[in-house]
Design a binder for these strands. Structure first.
Lengths: 154, 154
DNA sequence: AAAATAATTTAAAACATATTAAACAATGGA
DNA sequence: TCCATTGTTTAATATGTTTTAAATTATTTT
């Protein structure tokens, strides 16, 4: 592979790792993003020096994020992969999904704490109120997410 | 400790772990956040059933994030700790610092790729342009960060 | 100043995650 | 249909992170 491309992939991978993604996922996405043609899992593995099992696992992860997609070429009947080039869209969607999941989890717990008769503790109920306020801000944010997203991505 | 509080700390910790923070950091912050009075490292360790080494390490991490602060009480000459209650502020500051660090790292690499004479590859220079556009969006965002922050936190 | 208590640092252990290698399944071409 | 090739799953290995326990350092009390 070209030296510059290699460096870019390396840089992107470090970046991704910094925000908690695993190495393989970043490498594969960066490779596909920079490639001008779709690649097969085998090619990906060869180029990146990575086992085919690892390629397989992480391609599926990327598909779930809608960060890459399978395409079919006449002649080839096995799938090739391309990157969804809209990085902002991918990131924002992941963000939204993540926040939603966590909200759903925390809300009932806060409700429970609110109902609970530990009214003697003034500080505690004040803190619960603070958290509730924060949660409703986040919910507002989610409610306007599509608007915010289009402001950013367009 | 009170049952409800315990559950809340547990929930907050799971939440934090979900976004890549370590268990101890979350537990300590949640405990201090919900406590109505400052706590010493020893107390924290005892309440959470955690080694003092672990408390020490993770308190320092939290201090670096400005998520907790040392306070002194007359009579006590050793430091006690309280939570910075403004969670939004903490999160946004961490976000900003993180983005800045990563920008500084990726920018020179992009510049290098741009200078590089791989002009034969039309696709490649197009992709570089895409990334540059994205980076300048992020920079714009950072430039207006204080404004955005005050919109959110106030 | 010495003893007691508290906090930090460190090296090792426990734990978690990512990666591989090998077995298995599916597909395409002879 | 059988062989060759590609992709997936899995169990194990390797790697990285968190936590602890113990040693060290700092602080307070007597």
């Amino acid at each position: 592979m070209e030296k510059t491309k290699e460096k870019l992939i390396e840089a992107a991978t470090n970046l991704g790792e910094g925000i908690g993604l695993n190495r393989a996922v970043c490498q594969i996405y960066a490779l596909l993003y920079l490639s001008d043609h779709p690649l097969s899992p085998t090619e990906i593995g060869k180029i990146l020096g990575m086992s085919k099992g690892n390629v397989s696992i992480n391609l599926r992860t990327l598909e779930q994020w809608d960060a890459v997609k399978k395409i079919w070429r006449k002649g080839y009947s096995r799938a090739l992969y391309t990157a969804n080039e809209n990085i902002e869209e991918i990131v924002l969607n992941k963000l939204k999904t993540g926040i939603e999941k966590r909200l759903k989890y925390i809300k009932p717990i806060i409700s429970l704490a609110k109902e609970n008769p530990s009214h003697s503790d003034e500080n505690f109920s004040e803190k619960i109120n603070q958290i509730e306020k924060l949660l409703s801000k986040i919910e507002f944010f989610l409610g306007n997410f599509e608007t915010i997203k289009s402001l950013i991505t367009k």
